[in-house]
Design a protein around this nucleic acid. Structure first.
Lengths: 145, 145
DNA sequence: ATATATTCGGATAAATTTGTCCGAATTAAA
DNA sequence: TTTAATTCGGACAAATTTATCCGAATATAT
């Protein structure tokens, strides 16, 4: 639930790139997809999106690959990654798909979903790539399988 | 986000059926899809699923249609509806799509998502059709557009 | 009995998401 | 300057979800 496959791969890939950028190492598409266990060509598309969005950087040619500088890692939150892949609609819209759902004209689930949605948003907005990748580096969390 | 189209229609349809079952009226597929603004044939499939799952009842023939008895309305929560349409996986699984994500081997988002997931589950489990349909009946909430 | 209004069920089609392939562009190293 | 390793970009293919169509089964009313 929650995320599309593209977004799942995108977050995992971003995490992997971040992790290695901690040590100033670039990683190739091949490395990434092998290490996060994702389809290579499809992951390439997602990485392109992230690159165009300015979330990660890329360099062509031998010794090329993907990377993120530390300042970007620190100021980039998961919300940015999700936004880049899922689009703005992820954070908006009615849980039941109504076009005119609002405070003034709420769907039956509006009040309940509002709370949860908000929490999700806040949670994504308060989680930056740097902190997340430290968790992986320290062996507290995992990216594969 | 969150729900599939099938589930959105399913919940809205169930709400509409409940609403009219409050007054012991059966409603036809045609009425339902018109009033919740959903594609008729597709909604029929979803209603069939709900009917097979025992969440709503159906009767063929003229004056037939869909309905729910009040006891069922009271003891059926949204979680049941979602479960019937999205399946068990909706309440399980890793936010990043990892197969082996667990307390012992958590993905980087595990702890954050666990909380939100749990809240969603609890919220769905504590919301029954009867209470929801009263909200619609009283004009506090809406099902269309 | 017959006609009619309905749900049921299977086949199919359209749209979207997910995934693959391949050649072009770029860059570094030999 | 050639070769090789990489990302980039477009076209395509497969899978899934969403949506439609139509005839069969069923039940009601005339």
């Amino acid at each position: 639930m929650i995320f599309s496959k593209a977004c799942e791969y995108g977050i995992r890939a971003t995490m992997y790139v971040s992790l290695h950028s901690l040590e100033n190492k670039r990683v190739s598409l091949k490395d990434i997809s092998r290490e996060i266990d994702s389809p290579e060509a499809f992951t390439a598309k997602v990485l392109q999106q992230l690159s165009r969005s300015g979330i990660i950087n890329s360099l062509k040619g031998p010794t090329g690959g993907f990377f993120i500088d530390k300042p970007t890692m620190q100021k980039t939150n998961l919300s940015h990654v999700v936004y880049a892949i899922e689009g703005a609609s992820f954070f908006k819209g009615c849980g039941l798909g109504l076009k005119e759902c609002s405070e003034k004209r709420p769907c039956p689930l509006h009040s309940r979903f509002k709370i949860i949605r908000e929490e999700l948003r806040v949670s994504l907005e308060n989680t930056n790539l740097y902190d997340l990748s430290l968790g992986v580096k320290d062996g507290l969390t995992f990216l594969k399988k």
